[in-house]
């Protein structure tokens, strides 16, 4: 079985606070995994493990194994820049750079030392096509990214992540700040993207998790309570806590 992401006996502490407890989880390539759970349960912390975003927080201590494409990404020699090239991230609020639409997507290529303008142009177009934004922006590539709607900006951020050809895309509530039409486009995009990428998404929207993901993991108080096929989780969860959470009877 091809597991592109795996954690074993993973523990994470914010100083004395034990945020993730003994998490064992494996994700297959070209699947969408949804991480769900109440606020503060550790799902976003877990997501940020895979591109070492937690390194930026003071007092973080991690024990156990975190493997991406079979490699322990927390070993000393890990090239974090290279890791983040492989593991792209899309955040809750769209965060385009104060640049043109074209330059937003080209940015990652340029900082990676690519200067071939023909290649960059092709890659920008390809990424925008993949993120289902091309038809809407192809005639205004030199306009500021801020002129786009929220939903378009979010798809631009996805295009920006795709341009550097990651194998994994992490999404932290990517549609929570968007209207229903933009949300539907993002969800459709996730479905399309999984042909070529592995996606891990944090969402508070249960129906979104049910619609877009192949597997769902339910976190509670830093523990992985249940992880399984989304169909199974949403029709016949094994754990009472999972059932209470997804049916809105929590607490």
């Amino acid at each position: 079985m091809n597991h592109i992401i795996a954690t074993e006996k993973l523990n994470l502490f914010y100083n004395d606070f034990h945020a993730l407890k003994d998490i064992n989880m494996k994700m297959r390539a070209n699947t969408v995994t949804a991480l769900i759970g109440p606020s503060g349960c550790g799902k976003s912390t877990y997501l940020r493990l895979f591109n070492r975003m937690n390194d930026l927080i003071d007092g973080v201590k991690i024990t156990g194994d975190v493997r991406v494409e079979g490699k322990d990404i927390y070993e000393k020699n890990t090239d974090v820049v290279d890791l983040r090239r492989k593991v792209g991230m899309v955040f809750q609020k769209p965060n385009p750079f104060p640049k043109t639409i074209f330059e937003n997507v080209a940015y990652g290529l340029r900082v990676n030392g690519i200067n071939d303008n023909g290649f960059i142009k092709d890659k920008v177009e390809q990424s925008l096509v993949q993120s289902a934004l091309w038809d809407e922006v192809k005639d205004k590539m030199n306009k500021s990214a801020f002129e786009l709607s929220g939903g378009q900006q979010q798809r631009l951020c996805i295009a920006r992540a795709l341009a550097i050809e990651p194998s994994i895309i992490l999404m932290d509530e990517p549609a929570s700040a968007l209207d229903p039409i933009s949300t539907a486009k993002i969800e459709e995009l996730i479905y399309e993207l999984k042909q070529n990428y592995t996606i891990v998404i944090v969402t508070h929207n249960m129906q979104q998790a049910a619609r877009v993901s192949d597997h769902t993991a339910f976190f509670y108080l830093g523990e992985l309570i249940e992880y399984g096929e989304t169909k199974e989780i949403f029709t016949n969860p094994k754990d009472k806590k999972t059932q209470n959470y997804i049916t809105g009877r929590f607490g």
Partner: peptide
């Protein structure tokens, strides 16, 4: 209500 799990069943 988009029922799930036991509510759906």
């Amino acid at each position: 209500f988009n029922p799930v799990a036991i509510d759906l069943r």
